[in-house]
Design a protein around this nucleic acid. Structure first.
Length: 506
DNA sequence: TGGTATT
């Protein structure tokens, strides 16, 4: 009985928060004190109930109607298994709603379609509510997030699109404070299966006029995910560490340990006087990759995220979950020599090895990341060769360390830094995606966003992009260091991003 | 010289 009461209390609370009818209810009352409610503990009095029977929430019931009054209204759709008016636990006051379970699932569906919002009971000013109780499903597993809608599309438009796949209980366009659509919506079906069917049929199926890519149909965030998202946003605004690193458990701890290890390496390098932008660049890449891989968010870290093509010599290695032996030349799948040079020599063309000699062990993820850097560098010998020319002297800068746990959130956030912190970069290699762009600028500070402009029609990079730092000094340092930097046949153009309202050509 | 969004 205790369990039964708890269940009812939960269901009631759920429905109270769900319903838009203004029915007040405080959690806790269990309406089991009535003549129609069967005691599930006594087999002799329990009618048989379908295994897939649906518990219905009935709302907008006049408070003078009790179970025996309501029974005739609902009985015409089938045999009632249980009907319970919700009452305040302490005062016994009728709360204006009830739970109803038919013996057969089909009866519930019939009652819902016949009654829900179809008639208004005497004395009420809103129509009766007959719908599955929230306790019937978590809610989240049948609620969809729909993205890439046309901003002109209405609730009805979306309903029409989704109604073929099941019964839609809710359909809401997300709107900003001004009432304009954000181009996305929530659609809630009666069942998980319906929601899944809609995903299967509609996700990516079409591109709405004016939308930048094809329709997105996926399960909506769970409460937990929503909380995480909020935390991330908050942390991002405050420039704090990323809370995502904490719940990742063992992986997060491992990634953090890795980064600490790498930070220690970098510190020893700095003390040895070897620090130069190139070393910082390579180290930053290594950190990125290690962090990304450990979090399982990017199995092939050096694959451009946009553009579709892969730089020559880069084979997008997957980091094996069970490490296999790798040699100094790097990953399985990497040609032993790229561009005619041993990869390691291509990286450190200036003869400076910023890392202490190590004997590579096969199981060391650091080695894997290191190999990844080598591989990446091997594909861009020109870039790396030029670095030593670009910086005959150590430049007047101390590359800012990436702080622990910072990378994921920073990678994911898409926002400008303050004025003077945002760079426009032109003449990027065709193969560069957001990730590569960011890695290139990480040595100069805390990169809060990176974006390579991609032609939507061809999905090809337009060879320019944006990088935002969290402070103007980093941006200036990056300009000094990287403007005119030669990659292959091109030289990077690195300038402050033109403010939106300003009209000055550089 | 940008922006795939979660009641």
């Amino acid at each position: 009985m205790y369990i039964k009461m708890a269940t009812l209390a939960n269901g009631q609370a759920d429905n109270a928060s769900l319903s838009t009818n203004g029915l007040g209810s405080s959690p806790g009352s269990a309406g089991h004190m009535n003549g129609l409610s069967h005691s599930p503990g006594n087999p002799s009095t329990i009618p048989m109930k379908d295994h897939d029977a649906i518990k219905l929430f009935i709302g907008q019931i006049p408070r003078n109607l009790d179970e025996k009054d309501l029974k005739p209204l609902f009985e015409e759709f089938g045999k009632i298994y249980e009907l319970t008016v919700l009452k305040d636990r302490f005062t016994g006051m009728h709360k204006g709603c009830a739970f109803l379970t038919y013996c057969e699932r089909e009866s519930a569906l019939k009652a819902q379609s016949a009654l829900h919002e179809q008639k208004t009971l005497p004395g009420m000013n809103r129509p009766i509510q007959v719908k599955p109780a929230d306790s019937e499903s978590r809610g989240e597993d049948r609620k969809l997030f729909v993205g890439m809608l046309n901003k002109q599309q209405s609730e009805d438009d979306v309903r029409r699109l989704f109604e073929a796949f099941g019964n839609i209980e809710e359909c809401t366009i997300l709107r900003g404070p001004d009432g304009n659509s954000k181009g996305c919506a929530f659609v809630k079906y009666s069942s998980h299966a319906e929601a899944q069917a809609a995903i299967n049929a509609l996700h990516g199926s079409q591109t709405m006029p004016g939308a930048s890519s094809s329709l997105v149909v996926k399960f909506a965030d769970t409460d937990k995910e929503r909380t995480m998202r909020r935390m991330q946003q908050m942390a991002g605004q405050m420039g704090m560490f990323n809370p995502m690193a904490i719940p990742f458990g063992a992986y997060g701890a491992y990634a953090q340990a890795l980064m600490q290890q790498q930070a220690a390496l970098m510190a020893s390098v700095a003390q040895g006087g070897y620090l130069n932008p190139m070393a910082a660049f390579a180290a930053a890449q290594m950190q990125q990759m290690a962090a990304l891989n450990m979090n399982g968010l990017a199995a092939a870290p050096m694959t451009p995220t946009s553009g579709g093509s892969t730089p020559p010599g880069i084979t997008a290695p997957a980091v094996p979950s069970i490490p296999s032996p790798i040699g100094v030349n790097g990953f399985t799948g990497l040609p032993p020599q790229a561009n005619g040079q041993p990869a390691a020599e291509a990286v450190f063309a200036n003869g400076i090895h910023p890392y202490p000699a190590q004997s590579p062990t096969a199981a060391d993820p650091l080695q894997q990341a290191y190999a990844g850097v080598q591989q990446y560098a091997a594909a861009y010998p020109a870039a790396y060769g030029q670095i030593s020319q670009a910086f005959p002297q150590p430049p007047p800068m101390i590359p800012q360390q990436q702080r622990e746990g910072e990378s994921q959130q920073e990678v994911l956030s898409k926002r400008d830094g303050p004025e003077g912190c945002n760079l426009f970069i032109y003449h990027l290699p065709q193969e560069f995606g957001d990730a590569e762009l960011m890695q290139m600028f990480l040595p100069f500070g805390n990169v809060i966003s990176s974006k390579v402009f991609v032609d939507r029609a061809t999905n090809q990079s337009k060879c320019f992009g944006f990088v935002s730092f969290d402070n103007p000094a980093s941006a200036q340092t990056a300009i000094q260091a990287m403007n005119g930097f030669q990659i292959g046949m091109k030289r990077l153009k690195v300038q402050l991003k033109r403010p939106k309202d300003a009209n000055r050509p550089y």
